[in-house]
Design a protein around this nucleic acid. Sequence first.
DNA 1: TCAATACATAGGCCGCCGGT
DNA 2: ACCGGCGGCCTATGTATTGA
Length: 313
Amino acid sequence: MHGVQLQGVDLNLLVALEALLSERSVTRAGVRLGLTASATSHALARLRATFGDELLVRTRGGMIPTARGEQLLVPLRAALRDVGALLSNTARFDPRTSRREFVLASTDYIEAVLLPPLLARVSAAAPGVQLRVRPLELSDVAAPLESGAITVALGVVFDASPGLQQQALFSEEMVLVCRKGHPAVRRTIDLATYLRLRHVLVSVRGGSQSVVDDQLAELGHARQIALVVPHFLAAPLIVASSDLVLTTPARLVRRLGPALELRTLAPPLAVPGFTVRQVWHERHQDDPGHLWLRQQIFAAAKTLATSKDPSRC
DNA sequence: TCAATACATAGGCCGCCGGT
DNA sequence: ACCGGCGGCCTATGTATTGA
């Protein structure tokens, strides 16, 4: 805020100014405001003091705005419309005309799976709306969600934080992939073979353990991890051109498998699946725009859940 | 005729002050 | 230290009047 302190200024004066500039008459502006001409004139006097400008001058043809007054009218109306929307908390969100930007935080796996159906829905219903995806910083997702820097976070595990709301979107299973023609892999794979192979591990947080390794440890086994990468999408590319294998979300493989000449198999151990959730801050629970976006995300995820085509190689 | 001004009134805010 | 009443001050709005 520059120059003017808002405290000490009666913002209702701006309503009077809008009426005065529109009506170009103190009397008619007063009628419109529900005030007497006198009160309106006093209001005009206060406005003149505030703006340091006559705003309206008396001529033979009636009251006409000064250049300053003329120039104030458009931004003034915009400001009053905004304040009105602010107060009427029915501040509507109209997808057809909105040019709003929404920020999602997610992993590249979720981008690859969820963005295609989400973008299709959003583009159709809200052509002016822009989506922006940022990397999911799991360490601190609550603060940007609260501030609005991130509209919605998409992910699997979130640390409990007061004020955060979440909703399950879709479940995912893990599959094993290797390149077609891999010398050690046939149609199915047993645990012994699995343990002999060298693995790619995708670790968003940078650790070197996954649920697969936990599971193996319980059975008294360990696998050899040859490569740890932080992105889901790079891993299948690497697997396609090496003898490394990868245990990864099934939907990702379904999207990339055909193009990459990958073979998909069931893992030889019970690898638990996971559920992708959307998380938001309760502060934005009733924001019509946020609400609309969350509905779009939920609906887009629904289209994933129903397309459960069998994954073959 | 209509805006501007002078004066009057009402009501809110706030600090002072006395009582507990 | 806290509470409540009182009065001064300020602002908004009104009526009456002036004056272009």
